[in-house]
């Protein structure tokens, strides 16, 4: 493989990693602070994408569509928190898994009913559409670069919020010892709602900016949700820093794995055998990575201090 192709795959890997981070950050905070496992988090991503397409159709303006979609996604998340999730905080994980699974079944089907089963497409805002020249004969999508830049900016903002602000301090304290935070006289319910709404907005935002490059279809959040689980397990549950590093790692391993494993196998195997085994192996790569990390560090790479998962 040529070095320019490799460069493109590297960029694609970072871009996937950034999206994974936006989804996984909310997931890990919500779990870290509230001890709540929310399978329906991936649905927020899907809703973000659909609403963006929908509002884009109405307004014809990507930026406006994005803002409206975020607000609507937040409203939906707060409604779900109020109607379903808050009754689950004190329940065991099994109940949480099942009830949020029910939410997924409903929303995936609802999306199918409202917008149909056919994938939708949307183009990025005009000034960020198109490609730029990477090398003499290779162009790269500007939008993907934009996703990387925006994602890194949000990661920096999140880092600032979590490490430098009062609410961030509470979130970190909550991730290692929720009871203590409650004992400090903080309104836990309100903290939960803020963290939950914020996490859902991040996932919805990921869906919005992903809409122009992935197909917008029912169930699009499910696969990404499970990859996000892999990310937070590798990173260490409750840790933003761990999630960021693990997201980039998983994004790169997945993307590079898919583009190189078959070629690498061809060095050792018959081409036909490599073509058979390569794709299967590539799709296993991130899970093998996860297994390897867990084998040596069952708590993940950067476990939140004092937490025992």
């Amino acid at each position: 493989m040529s070095s320019t192709l490799l460069l493109i795959q590297l960029l694609n890997g970072i871009q996937l990693g950034v999206l994974l981070f936006l989804i996984a950050a909310g997931l890990t905070l919500v779990f870290g602070v509230m001890g709540f496992i929310n399978l329906a988090h991936g649905v927020q991503y899907m809703i973000g994408a659909y609403l963006t397409v929908w509002f884009y159709g109405m307004t014809g303006h990507f930026g406006a569509a994005l803002v409206l979609a975020l607000l609507a996604a937040l409203a939906l998340a707060l409604f779900l928190e109020f109607a379903v999730f808050r009754h689950l905080y004190d329940r065991d994980h099994l109940d949480q898994v099942l009830a949020t699974f029910g939410v997924i079944l409903f929303l995936n089907q609802a999306v199918k009913v409202i917008w149909g089963p056919v994938p939708l497409v949307i183009s990025p805002p005009e000034f960020l559409a198109g490609t730029f020249r990477l090398t003499e004969n290779l162009n790269y999508s500007i939008w993907r670069i934009a996703i990387i830049v925006i994602g890194l900016a949000i990661a920096a903002l999140l880092w600032f919020l979590v490490t430098k602000t009062r609410i961030g301090m509470l979130v970190r304290a909550g991730a290692s010892n929720a009871e203590m935070v409650g004992a400090l006289g903080v309104d836990i319910r309100r903290l939960f709602m803020i963290v939950f709404g914020f996490g859902a907005m991040l996932a919805g935002f990921a869906g919005s900016i992903a809409a122009p490059i992935y197909s917008v279809e029912p169930g699009m959040g499910d696969g990404l949700l499970i990859t996000a689980f892999v990310v937070i397990v590798i990173g260490g549950i409750g840790s933003i820093r761990g999630t960021f590093i693990a997201a980039l790692l998983v994004g790169l391993v997945d993307t590079l794995g898919r583009s190189t494993i078959t070629d690498i196998l061809k060095l050792f195997l018959e081409p036909s055998a490599a073509n058979q085994i390569g794709p299967a192996l590539a799709s296993m790569a991130i899970y093998i990575l996860m297994a390897a990390v867990l084998f040596f560090r069952p708590e993940g790479l950067f476990p939140a201090q004092g937490r025992r998962a």
Binding site: L88, L98, G102
Partner: peptide, 10 residues
């Protein structure tokens, strides 16, 4: 079925 499941759990 989705809401029913939530109902059963709760």
């Amino acid at each position: 079925f989705g809401p029913l499941l939530i109902f059963i759990v709760l």
